[in-house]
Design a binder for these strands. Structure first.
Lengths: 191, 191
DNA sequence: GGGTGAACTTGTCAATGCCTAGATTGCGCG
DNA sequence: CGCGCAATCTAGGCATTGACAAGTTCACCC
């Protein structure tokens, strides 16, 4: 898996080097700040080298999104309860912020990429199976769980929860959040 | 308010013209696709004219974000229940997709803009007052409601709910979603 | 009718994405 | 061993963009 040989002409593992550099940039300043030429400079190769591995900008981001969906699907697969599913989702977003920021932005990605479609399908399946057997219809239950986790993760990464969390661990806060929701449901004050 | 005079040199209402053009572009292809020179062309002015009104790209997006927070705060102010608050939130995202896509992306905005900070504060206040008086602590309740609405709105705009909605009205689906959540809370199968 | 400042233009520069053509390397195959 | 071949990377160029600087037009006011 880990090829770290340094060669003169051939980089050895340029594809992975560019990916990790891209993840650094995205995690720091978002996908907009990403420049293929900058990534090439960081890897010590010519400005057109990345194009060989990813074709273009959308290709690179699509590869990242596909990798992200693979990781997310694996993480969700380890959840043992519905609430745990949400925690895993939030944990993934916090652990892989760059992947997460790219995965749900169709305008940045190749619309017809096979690998991405397959990986995205795996994530969807994990969501669906974890929600199976709840009341009402399946689609609504999936949307409820997904919206909750995705909203929290998104607001967390965009630093919109800083004032509300003030220091608390995000995962703990998310757990408390679901508890709160369930309690207020048992005793709805406003309807 | 509506100045529609066509003059030779001075555009008349270039600021608004650029804003609406920008909203069109963003709604169609996201903030990344936005080009100041393209907006200038659409308005029939020189390529540097927008800079006079917005300084730079971040200035334009900041103005849009501030306007969006003003509109959102107003919409939330009309909510008469907690659930209605969520519906208003989702409705706003659907009605003003361009504003919504910019409002929660700090990396695209001026961090120290006064007008934006004030408008954002108004939105926050609406969220807090609407959630006041619920059980547990205030911050957790706000995060719960906000995550739910924001997650649904975000997934909706990024077309990630297409398969799950399949034709249904998003607002109706969101209402059903909250119902589902409250019901499953009363009868938690997986906990 | 002259000054003042806002609104806009023109010109320029560095950086970027993408394309094309060419160079280098490693590898299979005889 | 060596020959071809494909994968990998380089070099150069073009159109577009954001940002900046300096100049121009115009409305307004005394």
């Amino acid at each position: 898996m880990t090829v770290t040989t340094e060669r003169a002409y051939h980089h050895g593992d340029l594809r992975r080097a560019i990916l990790t550099a891209a993840l650094d940039v995205i995690a720091a300043d978002g996908p907009t700040a990403l420049s293929l030429r900058d990534l090439a400079r960081r890897a010590g190769v010519s400005h057109a080298a990345p194009a060989h591995h990813f074709k273009d900008r959308a290709g690179l981001l699509t590869a990242i999104a596909a990798e992200g969906h693979g990781l997310l699907a694996a993480a969700l697969g380890e959840a043992e309860s519905l609430r745990d599913l949400g925690v895993q989702y939030v944990r993934f977003a916090a652990a892989y912020p760059a992947h997460f920021q790219v995965m749900f932005r169709p305008e940045l990605l190749r619309p017809d990429d096979q690998e991405l479609a397959a990986a995205r399908e795996r994530t969807r399946n994990q969501l669906h199976t974890a929600v199976t057997g709840r009341g009402a219809d399946q689609a609504t239950a999936v949307m409820a769980a997904w919206s909750m986790a995705h909203g929290f993760a998104t607001l967390l990464l965009s630093r919109n929860l800083d004032g509300l969390l003030d220091g608390r661990d995000p995962e703990q806060a998310f757990l408390a959040l679901t508890n709160e929701l369930f309690q207020s449901a048992a005793n709805p004050a406003t309807g």
